[in-house]
């Protein structure tokens, strides 16, 4: 997931597929995290929520495969050149971690149910084949991993959310816009288009090279 060295015309925005997947998966993953901790703490909602949790989790697994392929084929826009190195490293590392967890969580969920001897029901009458042997120790390890990795995922998402909003509201460097919307065909009229994002996108102060701009 290394950012490629800027080619002559590096993209300023994530492509449409990346953006649609990013925001729909962000919603789905947040839902999964809340549904997950909510269902294991409920004496009444568990059956309904677990029936939602399994298929949505497997849908995330399928989507992250598409997303990774798209990401490898369409390099993301470079980070602003003036971003401190540690900051840029944190961004890259956290994106790697998010991808890893987006793969790991559903795979752990699926294999944990397999090891627990449960059918991995996706919808009534259809279950996935087991991907781990029915075994107490394997189940216990995976069951704990599902909890701890979920907590790590939630913590990482919170930091990622904070960083994204920091770019949007504090640095105002176009990083947020690179995921929020695509390149417009024409540059927006300077004054008429006064919404938040276009303000962020406007070269404020002398634009540093490579800053993501409209």
């Amino acid at each position: 997931m290394n950012r490629p060295t800027p080619s002559p015309r590096p993209p300023r925005h994530f492509n449409l597929v990346a953006r649609v997947l990013h925001w729909s998966m962000a919603l789905a993953i947040l839902a999964m995290l809340f549904v997950g901790v909510g269902m294991v703490a409920s004496l009444s909602l568990r059956p309904v929520l677990v029936d939602l949790h399994r298929p949505l989790g497997i849908a995330i697994l399928l989507l992250v495969i598409v997303r990774l392929i798209n990401r490898l084929r369409h390099p993301p826009p470079p980070l602003p050149a003036d971003l401190p190195r540690a900051h840029a490293f944190a961004a890259r590392a956290s994106h790697w971690l998010l991808y890893t967890l987006m793969f790991a969580m559903p795979l752990v969920g699926w294999s944990m149910l397999s090891a627990g001897g449960y059918p991995v029901t996706i919808f009534k009458g259809f279950a996935l084949l087991p991907i781990a042997p029915h075994h107490a120790t394997i189940y216990a390890v995976l069951r704990s991993a599902h909890t701890w990795l979920a907590l790590l995922l939630f913590a990482t998402v919170l930091m990622h959310l904070a960083a994204a909003l920091f770019h949007a509201w504090v640095r105002r460097d176009g990083v947020f816009a690179s995921m929020a919307r695509g390149a417009l065909a024409l540059p927006p009229p300077a004054a008429a288009d006064a919404d938040l994002e276009s303000v962020e996108d406007k070269p404020i102060a002398p634009a540093p090279t490579n800053q993501r701009q409209q």
């Binding site: 294991v40 409920s42 004496l43 568990r46 059956p47 627990g116 107490a136 120790t137 216990a140 069951r143």
Partner: peptide
């Protein structure tokens, strides 16, 4: 359904440990 899962998780962890 909810309580059996907790009971199962506890006993499987004890076996694993």
């Amino acid at each position: 359904s909810a309580v059996y899962s907790v009971s199962f998780n506890r006993r499987e962890h004890e076996i694993a440990g």
